[in-house]
């Protein structure tokens, strides 16, 4: 069975499991909405320009929500004790890794689809160039999914993993967060800047590097 097909099968299995239980999707979306709400309480004051907070609230919500879903990403395998069995297949650990990355990506895309309109609505903001923001969100979520899946997979068997995941993940994702916030801020305020392509290429380089490094490290670190 080739790697691609195995990845798809594993992804389909995970999607079925998630769709059947429904709680995880619901809880994650609920958490994201609450996050936006809490930020509004924290930052908004009457009379102040709300638009300044849009990029920060949006990206930090995505970051926080991703760690909620990442902690549950390997839960079915852990509870069933099937992690070793799946990685024992002939294709090695790559299909398992990429199927989890795709699952996490689907999760964050779902969260994104709910959160972006919500934040724009709550803070009364408008995006000047939608395409750039969509590209930034896409690149950001891919990087987040790849690095996050690796961290979640490796930390699965470590004590205090709920605390350790953000501790490792947040500093590592700092470049994506900074770039994402900058691109969104430029779009919300409608400023045309040559820095835009710089930020997008930084995100692209980040994604490319970790798309190569992460599966290799995953294979190395989980190898029996």
């Amino acid at each position: 069975m080739n790697t691609l097909r195995l990845t798809w099968l594993l992804l389909r299995k995970d999607m079925q499991v998630t769709a059947r239980s429904k709680e995880l999707v619901g809880v994650t979306l609920m958490f994201a909405v609450l996050c936006v709400l809490v930020f509004s309480f924290g930052f908004l004051q009457s009379g102040a320009a709300a638009i300044r907070y849009v990029p920060g609230v949006l990206w930090v919500t995505l970051l926080f929500t991703s760690s909620v879903s990442l902690l549950r990403l390997f839960a079915p395998e852990e509870e069933g004790g099937t992690l070793a069995l799946v990685s024992m297949t002939t294709s090695g650990s790559a299909p398992l890794f990429w199927s989890k990355v795709c699952l996490q990506l689907l999760f964050s895309a779902l969260v994104c689809a709910l959160i972006v309109p919500l934040v724009l609505l709550f803070f009364d903001a408008r995006l000047s160039n939608v395409g750039t923001v969509v590209a930034a969100l896409g690149l950001g979520l891919i990087g987040q999914a790849v690095v996050g899946t690796l961290c979640a997979a490796l930390l699965a068997q470590v004590r205090l993993k709920e605390v350790m995941l953000p501790l490792i993940l947040y500093p590592m994702l700092a470049p994506l967060l900074i770039a994402g916030v900058k691109v969104t801020a430029l779009s919300v305020t409608g400023v045309e800047s040559p820095a835009l392509s710089n930020w997008l290429s930084l995100m692209m380089v980040f994604d490319l590097i970790f798309m190569v490094v992460s599966p290799w490290l995953y294979g190395r670190a989980t190898q029996p």
């Binding site: 490796l154 490792i168 490094v213 995953y218």
Partner: peptide
């Protein structure tokens, strides 16, 4: 191994 992988990352 996990610690080493994270240090490499």
């Amino acid at each position: 191994r996990v610690g080493a992988a994270m240090a490499v990352m």
